[in-house]
Every structure is written in structure tokens, then in C-alpha cells.
């Protein structure tokens, strides 16, 4: 494993019991709000209701209405407001109830947040975090099941984090809040209850560092966000047949730790990329292109991609299951890759 691949650091000695991904995020916000009075939180139902997914539980009680602001259902408005406040030197954390509603605010994110530093010649910063949970799997159908990693990762000027573990959820969110650039922070609805160790108040997870989730020498699997867990169960399945996969989690898509990804692929000579988004122009397409550029000569087989089906998400449970990447799809992709040996 390359030295740069900061594999999930061990919990600090005496670290508290495992906490959920949800609670890890709450801790990150609470600690950063305690540390820095310019950090405030804004979003729909983040205060009294404590968040649609209860990620902001207890924050209104602790920090009051000045710093925990319930908004109207006006995403374009309050994301834009966050950008303005950030330009004035505050550090807003804007929660979008889900990634699906970021589409209403896309103009503000792409045309303003990502641009103000550059187009004004570096005169202003935009230290904004826009948090939002995404992903499918709860039969929420076509308008409520998006995975838009690729949209955001496409935009120069944004940083994009997609944590898969409680440790990274906390450490990356703290790093995002302290970052001087706009960060799109993609949480996964399906991971909120996932438990694991987390770091202490001063443990940040730096952007642009991938993490190895499993070691193996037969095939590299790059997996994003919730897909890390799907991939790990596929890897266990394959291990029973003696196929050992190395599972790498990029953790941030922008900046992207291509060195760690490429180093792994150079060792295994094979790569599969697993994402929850759509296949066309997706994260997998991009990572495959980057890996071909980096290590074409080292590859023994074409890079395989696993993604959602190229359809809007259907409501019916059986179709939703068929549309979403399952461990069996990852197993099949790895076998295909090895078959080309």
C-alpha cells in the first residue's frame, strides 16, 4: 500500500465507544461551532425539528437561533445567502434536506459559489459547506433518489467529499468547515445509522487522501460512499473463492487522490469502479479515464464499471433493487475483469 493511503486511522487511545455516522456529523458541527464563532448552520427544519434525518439534534438548544437557523423552503435563496455570508467572512454550513433539492440551488452553487474567488481575481473567499444526504434504496422513486457526485465533481472551484465511514464523516466535515473554499459534502442516507470509531476534536481527515478499506492483490476496486460497503461484502464473497480484492475509497472526489488509486492498480493490474450514480459521464467514467491515463500499460484487462442502471429510479421495490448496484454486480464485474487474464 502506498504510504499516502491513509488507511482509516485507528481510533485514538481511549476514544469513546463507536458512534453512528449521523452522530459523527453532529459532533463535527458541534465542535467546530464551539471552536469558531463564525460558523453557523442554516437549512430547512435543522433547528426545532432537529433535521429531517436528525443530524442536527441538540444544536439549536446549544447554540440558539442566531447560529442555528430554520429556513423557508427556498433552496436557491438560502444557498445563495450562504455564499454571500461566506464572502463576508462567515463560515456557513448549509444543510440541504437531500441532494435532490440541491438541483433547485444549482445555479447558486455552480455560478456563484464555484466562481467568486476566480472571476474576481482572488479578492474573495467562499468558505461555505453545503451538506446533503443522497442516494437511493428507500423506494423514494425518480425525484428523490439521486446520486449527483459526478455533477459536483465536474465543477472547478468546488471541493467534493463523500465519506463512507463515521470516522471520515467527522474528520472530513471538520476539514470542510475549516476549508477556505466551497465544499459540497455528500452524505449517504443509507449510512446514517452505520456505527464506527471517530476521531477527537482535533483530528481532521485531509481532503485528497484515499483510504484502503481492504488489502488484496488480484483486483483493485474503487468504491464511492455507500458503495464501499456493498463492495466490501462483494470482496468477502470473492475471498471465499480465493480472489483477493483491494478496496480503495477515494473519500474526496475533488481533490482526487489519483496517485493512491493508480499505485494500487499498478500492483493488481485490474480495476473495477463502483458508484451509485448513472453510468454515462459518471464518476466511474472519469476515474476510468484517469486510471487509463496513469497506468494503461499496467492493466491486464479493461477497467470495469458498476453503477446504477441508466434509468430514472423506479418506485417498485423489485425494480429499485434491479436498478441499484448490488454486491452480486460487483462480484460479476471482478470476475469479468479476471476472466480477461
Amino acid at each position: 500500500m502506498s504510504t499516502k493511503a491513509a488507511s482509516a486511522p485507528a481510533a485514538s487511545p481511549g476514544a469513546a465507544k463507536p458512534v453512528s455516522y449521523r452522530e459523527a456529523l453532529t459532533q463535527a458541527m458541534r465542535e467546530e461551532m464551539q471552536r469558531d464563532p463564525s460558523v453557523f448552520l442554516m437549512g430547512e427544519d435543522v433547528g426545532r425539528y432537529e433535521g429531517a434525518f436528525k443530524v442536527t439534534r441538540g444544536l439549536l438548544r446549544e447554540f440558539g437561533e442566531r447560529r442555528v437557523v430554520d429556513t423557508p423552503i427556498s433552496e436557491a435563496g438560502f444557498v445563495g445567502l450562504g455564499i454571500g455570508a461566506a464572502m463576508a467572512g462567515l463560515r456557513p454550513i448549509v444543510e440541504l434536506m437531500t441532494v435532490n433539492f440541491s438541483i433547485v440551488a444549482m445555479d447558486q452553487i455552480v455560478n456563484n459559489a464555484a466562481k467568486v474567488r476566480y472571476m474576481f481575481g482572488g479578492q474573495v473567499a467562499c468558505p461555505l459547506v453545503v451538506r446533503m444526504p443522497g442516494g437511493a434504496g428507500h423506494q423514494l422513486a425518480a425525484q428523490h433518489s439521486h446520486s449527483l457526485e459526478a455533477w459536483f465533481a465536474h465543477i472547478p472551484g468546488l471541493k467534493v467529499a463523500a465519506p463512507a465511514t463515521p470516522f471520515d464523516a467527522k474528520g472530513l466535515l471538520k476539514a470542510a468547515i475549516r476549508d477556505d473554499d466551497p465544499v459540497i459534502f455528500l452524505e449517504s442516507e443509507g449510512l446514517y445509522a452505520k456505527k464506527g470509531p471517530v476521531g477527537g476534536p482535533d483530528e481532521l481527515v485531509p481532503f485528497g487522501r484515499a483510504a484502503a478499506r481492504r488489502a488484496g492483490s488480484d483486483c483493485t476496486i474503487v468504491a464511492i460512499s455507500r458503495m464501499v460497503w456493498i463492495t466490501l461484502s462483494a470482496a468477502e464473497e470473492l475471498a471465499k473463492e480465493g480472489i483477493e480484492c483491494e478496496v480503495i475509497d477515494p473519500r474526496t472526489l475533488r481533490p482526487l487522490d489519483i496517485e493512491t488509486l493508480a499505485a494500487s492498480v499498478r500492483r493488481t493490474s485490474r480495476a473495477v469502479i463502483v458508484e451509485e450514480g448513472w453510468p454515462e459521464c459518471g464518476v466511474g467514467a472519469n476515474l476510468a479515464a484517469r486510471l487509463y491515463e496513469e497506468c494503461f500499460d499496467d492493466l491486464d484487462a479493461p477497467i470495469a464499471r458498476v453503477s446504477s442502471a441508466d434509468v430514472p429510479m423506479p418506485y417498485a421495490k423489485n425494480l429499485e433493487m434491479a436498478a441499484l448496484p448490488q454486491p452480486a454486480d460487483v462480484v460479476a464485474a471482478v470476475r469479468r475483469t479476471l476472466g480477461a487474464r
Binding site: 423506494q139 422513486a141 423506479p314 418506485y315 421495490k317
Partner: peptide
């Protein structure tokens, strides 16, 4: 119920 006999063929569900 998300069935094929649904008014949108099971693709939409309660919200759609």
C-alpha cells in the same frame, strides 16, 4: 403497492 396494475405501472408510487 408498487404493482404493475398501478396507475403509473408501479414506477411512480404514492408521490407520483
Amino acid at each position: 403497492f408498487g404493482r404493475s396494475t398501478g396507475i403509473c405501472g408501479g414506477l411512480g408510487g404514492s408521490m407520483h
